[in-house]
Nucleic acid binder design. Structure first.
Lengths: 203, 203
DNA sequence: TATTTTTGATTGACTGATCAATCAACAAAA
DNA sequence: TTTTGTTGATTGATCAGTCAATCAAAAATA
């Protein structure tokens, strides 16, 4: 029942299918056939709309990061103080759907792919920068710039590290525990600084 | 010039070659031909000694983790106090050869592979557990068990996270900065605990 | 010591399977 | 009749894995 205006529908179906298949498979060595089958179309159609497998995968990363970004924007809007915004960023990073094993597996596969695909790498770099700069902007409201930079770097690393450790599925850490570990890190590094600031004021 | 007793020599050459090729390529989708060529033998010989590509890759992970383990044992032996031992563990994790882009790329590829290969996953789980338990053992000498567990988890995540962020090669962090971030984390989380312990003693 | 036999090392050539990509053809809507 | 959506069939390339054959050292035998 071919109708007109199917292109956006098919593109979305294929990108979503790719995400699912990659997540299940835990790797980018999935076939166009598998993806197309999951999307309910023929492999030829996938090529028709995306031109190549590589391009489909790139669009898949892009869409995934876009969704993540939307979540962050929403949550940041709801948060009032800088400290609340920091918590919002952390919360989104460990959102249930983000932290699901298949999502983590896909995430990891994309990181590996970034070693070869310049375009995939570019998207991940943008994500990494955004995470860092979101953290940094709010930390700067709470402590001196240099400290903020250090803490942002550390927090970003901790978030990514909790992901990669999760991917092994030995001793899985709960969402709450992951959030707690990251919050602890920020609190522990901010504590002595605000103490110092208070002393400074007292003088 | 075929001589007897070549087996161990060839096995080592192939495993080393695999590590190099994977690192350069940034992915496990390397051909047996490439690996064999790098090792200076025919592809058929690689199959002769390892039976399959999968097995060669598994041996490669194994050998890599073995080397890392040896470094840790050596450094731990040289360190005296628990705090020094913690620093030794961190130092080894960011050793120059471990932190080289190709090594990190290979590392990442193995993590991705672990999603599919149960045996690869097993090795990485062993590594993760070892890192955690090395940290934990020494932290327990410095703070209560529950705190030690939290801190060990966080430090391990931070180390792995610094690796994965390094893999993107945007804003690379130096070895020293990586060590400093991890040390800072441990210091910041231990500080309030030893303070509390001191107060406890005073009472 | 001279010879034959066995054994381990090694490869070139081949096979079979997989898969991305192409294309010609058809169906329905405009 | 043109345009858009769709697919089955096919192609060409890539690769893991196999195999039979070769070669030289070592061991056994004469």
């Amino acid at each position: 029942m071919p109708k007109v205006g199917m292109e956006p529908v098919r593109r979305k179906a294929l990108v979503d299918a790719a995400m699912r298949v990659i997540g299940d498979h835990g790797s980018l060595t999935v076939t166009m056939s598998e993806i197309a089958k999951q999307a309910g179309v023929s492999p030829a159609l996938a090529h028709h709309y995306f031109g190549s497998k590589e391009q489909l995968l790139i669009e898949t990363v892009r869409s995934h990061l876009q969704r993540l970004r939307d979540s962050v924007v929403t949550e940041l809007g709801a948060a009032k103080t800088p400290r609340e915004k920091l918590s919002a960023i952390i919360r989104v990073s460990f959102q249930a759907d983000q932290f699901a094993p298949e999502t983590i597996a896909a995430w990891l596969a994309f990181y590996a792919e970034a070693q070869r695909s310049e375009e995939t790498r570019r998207f991940l770099v943008i994500y990494a920068r955004r995470l860092r700069s979101n953290l940094l902007a709010n930390l700067k409201a709470l402590c001196p710039r240099e400290d903020a930079e250090r803490i942002a770097e550390g927090a970003a690393a901790m978030i990514d590290g909790l992901y990669i450790r999760q991917s092994l599925r030995s001793a899985p850490i709960s969402i709450e525990a992951s959030i707690a570990l990251t919050e602890d890190y920020i609190n522990a590094l901010l504590a002595p600084l605000s103490q110092k600031a208070a002393l400074q004021k007292d003088r």
